[in-house]
Design a protein around this nucleic acid. Structure first.
Ligand SMILES: [Mn+2]
Length: 608
DNA sequence: CACCTGTTTGC
DNA sequence: GCAAAC
DNA sequence: GGTG
């Protein structure tokens, strides 16, 4: 029972990918590693008080820009657009450096706020682009930009909409390229975000499937030379930070870019300014992904959510995922594909034995290394014939190369055959919520060999007692529709407290996984304040609820000290109907203006 | 040889 | 301040 | 255990 070590749902956060394997300075860590902090910084520096946005300059900009606009042909279009922010403005969008999906969103933001687009650049006096000035001249094939042509940037569009004013376009600039080393996809589409539509379910806006950008590192073998034209915020470009190492500059600019992209896609709703619904953009038409539909996973599209008791145990409704295979995290959705196509199973089987041992022994980084190596080998597509061949792969070093040689020559590995006596017990104990390697060893040292021994002899903490009590249930993953049903209860309850509060089911559910280890829900509020206070009320009301049974609290984590943003609840719940298996529920409150970062963080990925 | 994410909380 | 969680 |  419970032998299976469940691997963490989210192994790598979005920010880890920016420079894998590259040690950063303490300073860099502090500044860049936390997406939430970073977005706060950005918004603090540049967002909340629109710089250079005095009434006069706004007006002047507006007038200056509008004089260059094309003539209106019909009275109707004039009435429709004259009151809108970009009314009378015509721009030409240069889509280089901008992903298809994002370009589409930018177009919509522009036009839904009254702007017009002219991609032939014949009449447009505005160039909407995110390339460097020099590249732009190259694209337009000119030595200098023509008189009266103004370059504007997607971020400027976002900011204008956010502040409902035409800001000075020079505040958002794209600098000339900074060459940086960064392991990303070789085509440089770091910010390419794909969206799969999803079958109908209970939660209208919480069942989308978002898959993050394709990534070749840290598993990929290539560290490519990427040239980014970083959106540079002149007012927050702190020179002391900028002067540090290249990797920091890269992380900073890439992080800014990704977060701003998420904000582009989320902060602003379809109808533009003053969005009060935080939503991601998922209304991508199916033709968006032409040519790759052959790999679409079809969805079993019955209305399972209306009768959860039927669907919970049997039907696992799978999301329709388009463009399967374009992204690393989608490639092995369902570990089956990758295992079936594994051309190096003999090697990876051995490495998995070593992985299990490292897991049991709590050797955190060795676990990471083995996971990376195993996944890389499974995806390698060619049967490895020697250790030296394997050694060339990023993530496989001398020790694994030696093991691989031994496996290829002898069919076995002596190292993998020496299994410590304590391993199985340590693994068992670490399946208890709240028990890590230290506690497991201490229980072992106290003579415990079974969970009953622990109950009898050891002194488990409150959380560990709950972990013991629900050991078997919590080892199991749940079908995604059960996660959806649980999340929907939280959503409805939260809405009953404050109809303006907004909840989204995150984590593996949002990634479209058919099975979910837990349910993660984030709660926010457009007023920017209420998220701070809603959680106790939400928990209290959930405890009264009969549609979701809150069984126990692991912790109710209040923002007592310094950190003002994150508060969370961690608990154990179950649905009243169905098998009644106990499930882990996490609820996190997020400040409204950190939702872009929160979406990135809590969507996570499972590329390992 | 340092680093492998960083922050929070229970104990 | 360690251990564990996300 | 691998990378830089
Ligand atoms: Mn999860």
């Amino acid at each position: 029972m419970g032998k299976r070590r469940s691997s963490p749902d989210t192994l790598i956060d979005a920010h880890v990918r920016f420079s894998p394997g590259q040690p950063k300075t303490k300073h860099a860590k502090k500044d860049l590693s936390n997406a939430k902090n970073a977005v706060s910084l950005l918004r603090l520096d540049s967002g909340s008080t629109p710089p250079l946005a005095s009434e006069q300059t706004d007006y002047q900009h507006a007038e200056a820009l509008k004089t260059t606009s094309p003539k209106r042909t019909s009275h109707e279009s004039l009435t429709n657009t004259r009151n809108k922010l970009f009314g009378g403005l015509c721009a030409s969008l240069i889509s280089e450096n901008i992903s298809r999906v994002r370009a589409k969103i930018i177009r919509r933001l522009w036009t839904s706020n009254g702007g017009t687009l002219d991609d032939t650049a014949q009449t447009a006096k505005l160039i909407l682009s995110e390339v460097s000035p020099s590249r732009l001249r190259q694209i337009l094939d000119v030595q200098q930009l023509p008189e009266g042509v103004q370059v504007i940037y997607p971020d400027w569009v976002s900011r204008c909409i956010a502040s409902n004013a035409l800001l000075d376009p020079t505040i958002c600039q794209v600098s000339d390229p900074v060459e940086v080393d960064c392991a990303v996809a070789s085509d440089g589409t770091l910010t390419d975000i794909e969206i799969g539509d999803h079958g109908s379910e209970t939660a209208s806006d919480s069942t989308e499937v978002l898959e993050l950008e394709r990534v070749s590192g840290p598993l990929g073998s290539d560290t490519t030379h990427l040239v980014t034209s970083a959106p540079a915020f002149t007012e927050n470009m702190d020179t002391s930070r900028k002067a540090e190492t290249t990797s920091e500059v890269s992380a900073d600019s890439l992080l800014s870019r990704i977060i701003h992209e998420e904000q582009d896609r989320t902060r602003l709703s379809v109808d533009g300014a003053n969005a009060d619904r935080f939503e991601s953009d998922f209304d991508v038409e199916s033709d968006e992904f032409d040519g790759i539909d052959d790999e679409v996973i079809e969805i079993d599209d019955d209305a399972t959510a209306t009768k959860p008791e039927d669907s919970l145990t049997k039907g696992v409704d799978q999301p329709k995922i388009r463009s399967q295979g374009r992204f690393l995290c989608m490639q092995e959705n369902g570990r089956k594909d990758i295992d079936m196509n594994n051309k190096n199973a003999q090697i990876t089987d051995v490495l998995e034995v070593l992985l299990r041992r490292s897991e049991a022994e709590g050797e955190h980084f060795r676990v990471l290394s083995y996971r990376r190596a195993i996944q890389t080998l499974k995806r390698h597509g060619k049967t490895i014939e020697s250790g030296s061949e394997a050694r060339k792969i990023f993530g496989i070093g001398g020790k694994m190369a030696d093991i691989i040689d031994e496996v290829i020559e002898t069919g076995r590995s002596r190292k993998a055959e020496t299994v410590p006596e304590s391993q199985a017990v340590l693994a068992l104990f670490q399946g208890v919520h709240g028990c890590g390697i230290k506690v497991a060893r201490s229980w072992y040292a106290q003579g415990c060999r079974t969970l009953d021994d622990v109950r009898a002899k050891a002194r488990p903490t409150h959380n560990q007692l709950l972990g013991l009590q629900f050991y078997d249930d919590l080892q199991q993953k749940m079908p995604r529709n059960e996660a959806g049903a649980i999340g929907e209860c939280v959503i409805q309850t939260c809405r009953s407290i404050d109809s303006k509060s907004q909840c989204t089911i995150m984590g593996s559910y949002r990634r479209g996984r058919p099975m979910c280890g837990d349910v993660d829900v984030i709660v926010t509020h457009p007023d920017g304040r209420s998220h701070q206070t809603i959680l106790p009320a939400l928990i209290a009301r959930l405890k009264e609820s009969s549609s979701l049974l809150l069984i126990a609290d692991l912790h109710l984590h209040s923002s007592s000290s310094g950190y003002d943003s994150a508060t969370s609840y961690m608990g154990i719940c179950r649905l009243p109907e169905g098998a009644g298996i106990h499930r882990r529920l996490d609820i996190w409150t997020v400040p409204w203006d950190e939702m872009g970062a929160a979406f990135l963080h809590w969507t996570g990925n499972d590329i390992l």
